[in-house]
Computed example of a mutant assay.
Amino acid sequence: MKNKILVIEDDRAISELLCMNLTIAGYETVAAYDGIEAQRLLLWNEDADLAVVDIMLPGRDGFALMEDFRAKNLPVIYLTAKDDVASKVKGLKLGAEDYMVKPFEMLELLVRIEKILERTGRAKRILTIKNIQADLQSHQILKDGIPVNLKPLEYDLFILLLQNKNIALGREELLKRVWGEEYLGESRTVDVHIGQLRKKLELYDEIKTIPKLGYRLED
């Protein structure tokens, strides 16, 4: 099953970009383009897991919608051009989980979504690719139903790739998020672990090398 993200954004180009990237990352998306439509959207999406919301919306702005989100107990990330401190404080005080200012980095938004879903207990616990299942609750990887023994860093690296399917991740990004900010070793350690994942999971074609950058898990 996929997590469902509501995208409430009146700029259709930005909305389409958000929905496209969220879909590529493995989420289901539903879009609304104004505050009134967003209210109707909430009524029909009881299984939604998170909303990405612009503030300056026609009909009813993002701040006014927070009452509806709270009634549904739905986590919210404000994604807005309003970069003043007063608006950020207001948004967070109203109950938003996070507040991001446009222009934004898509990868950063995906990380924040992932963290909020995990923190709120909404993250889907089973991730899949081909004949492989990753159970995030038991920390178990199954291939054709049979457990695969991955070392802790191999597991963390594979889950990161799996949670960002079809997105290119640089070696430095992988090092930072798997090995940690304090890691001082060589980036080649990523290559070694990728090699082990390809071998153990037989994902030779799916884990793509991106020249001069890093890797991408393609589904």
Rank of each mutant, 00 (worst) to 15 (best):
D144L: 10
D144Q: 14
D144W: 10
D144N: 15
D144T: 11
D144P: 07
D144F: 12
G145C: 04
G145N: 05
G145D: 01
I146Q: 15
I146S: 12
P147W: 09
P147G: 06
P147H: 10
P147V: 09
V148K: 13
V148C: 09
V148S: 07
V148E: 08
V148M: 12
V148T: 11
N149D: 15
L150T: 08
K151T: 13
K151E: 15
K151P: 05
K151M: 15
K151Q: 15
P152S: 15
P152W: 14
P152V: 14
L153R: 13
L153T: 10
L153D: 07
L153S: 11
E154P: 14
Y155A: 03
D156R: 15
D156G: 05
D156I: 02
L157W: 04
L157A: 00
F158C: 08
F158P: 08
F158D: 05
I159Q: 05
I159D: 02
I159V: 10
I159G: 04
I159A: 06
I159L: 07
L160P: 09
L160N: 13
L160Y: 14
L161C: 03
Q163T: 05
Q163R: 13
N164F: 07
N164W: 01
N164L: 02
K165L: 09
K165R: 15
K165D: 03
K165I: 11
K165S: 10
N166Q: 02
N166V: 01
N166W: 02
N166D: 04
I167A: 09
I167Q: 11
A168Y: 01
A168H: 03
A168S: 11
A168W: 01
A168E: 12
L169H: 07
L169D: 00
L169G: 02
L169Y: 03
G170Q: 12
R171H: 01
R171A: 00
R171G: 00
R171E: 01
R171L: 00
R171C: 01
E172V: 07
E172S: 11
E172Q: 15
E172A: 11
E172R: 15
E173I: 04
E173K: 14
E173P: 07
L174Q: 06
L174E: 00
L175C: 06
K176Q: 14
K176H: 08
K176C: 06
